[in-house]
């Protein structure tokens, strides 16, 4: 696989580069792409729509990328994560339904404390050296979506729009089980500060968007009024040219803004694959001194 990318990279380089660029040397940048599909359960409450708890099914799709950067002697990885959640939940008497859809986009910079950075847990299996990595770093993210109640009138839905700065921590651990190399990883993200959209306590969307009346509709969020946690535990199993990933995602998102209480607690089991890439990029050669 690496040779294939090297070959393609070289061909593209030869086709595209100019004579000056030809003086550049090539460098690898390790990257990985993760695709996961999940199914699980969700519990939801949004007092703007109903005081009752709703429970039901959640489907997830996650697509993530990770690559080693040149920062701090290549000890920093850059991670992006696109997570889409779709929920269908009902109240206890099963007389009303919430239909929800939210897309979360996060970007994180992780510093590796125990050895050089690796782009994917699977890479650790072949990286040699220490078998444990602890990663810490900041994360920025945003979420957009909505929650629709199938029988409400003038308060039929709640919009979800928020941005946050989080603390992100993860560990990777390589070990062997029945002679099979495995990598265990866990990543936890905790938003520390952010902003989110919220109607006022009894404000209608007609007033906000048709009449244009604003009333504290952008709210500051902190762990005190929006204690939120996302935790993903994963096991990677090398499988031919890919790596199979099995994961458990616990996602606890909640907020209390303008006296409106909201939460979505979800658990999901995920399955997918991780593909490791070696991206060939030109690196400028220092000019010779005379």
């Amino acid at each position: 696989m690496n040779r294939l990318f090297l070959f393609i990279g070289c061909v593209l380089g030869l086709l595209c580069c100019d004579p000056v660029a030809a003086q550049e040397t090539m460098s690898f940048r390790r990257a990985s792409r993760t695709t996961l599909f999940g199914v699980g359960g969700a519990r939801q409450q949004d007092t703007y729509l109903s005081p009752l708890n709703y429970r039901g099914l959640q489907l997830n799709f996650l697509f993530g990328t990770q690559r080693v950067t040149h920062l701090l002697d290549s000890c920093v990885t850059f991670q992006t994560l696109l997570q889409a959640d779709f929920t269908s939940t009902t109240n206890a008497p099963e007389k009303a339904t919430y239909l929800g859809g939210v897309v979360h986009f996060d970007a994180a910079w992780h510093y590796s404390f125990c050895g050089s950075a690796v782009v994917a847990p699977s890479a650790l299996a072949t990286a040699g050296g220490r078998s444990f990595r602890l990663l810490l770093g900041p994360q920025v993210g945003a979420s957009f979506g909505g929650l629709y109640n199938t029988r409400n009138g003038n308060n039929p839905a709640q919009a979800i729009a928020e941005m946050h700065l989080s603390a992100s921590a993860a560990f990777l651990w390589r070990f062997r089980l029945w002679k099979q190399p495995l990598v265990l990883s866990d990543q936890m993200d905790i938003p520390l500060i952010g902003m989110m959209f919220s109607p006022a306590y009894g404000q209608s969307y007609y007033e906000i968007f048709t009449l244009g009346n604003r009333d504290h509709n952008i709210c500051l969020t902190t762990p005190f009024n929006a204690p939120t946690l996302r935790n993903q535990l994963a096991v990677d199993l090398p499988f031919r040219r890919c790596t199979l990933r099995l994961a458990y995602l616990a996602d606890f998102r909640q907020s209390r803004t303008n006296e409106i209480r909201r939460h979505t607690y979800s658990h999901a089991f995920l399955i997918g694959w991780v593909r490791q890439l070696d991206i060939l990029r030109p690196r400028p050669t220092p000019a010779p001194s005379h």
Partner: peptide
């Protein structure tokens, strides 16, 4: 009017704004 609901699932409508 806004809507809400009771534990037994009955829907309630009330003047809100």
């Amino acid at each position: 009017p806004f809507n809400s609901e009771l534990p037994n699932g009955w829907s309630v409508r009330f003047s809100a704004c």
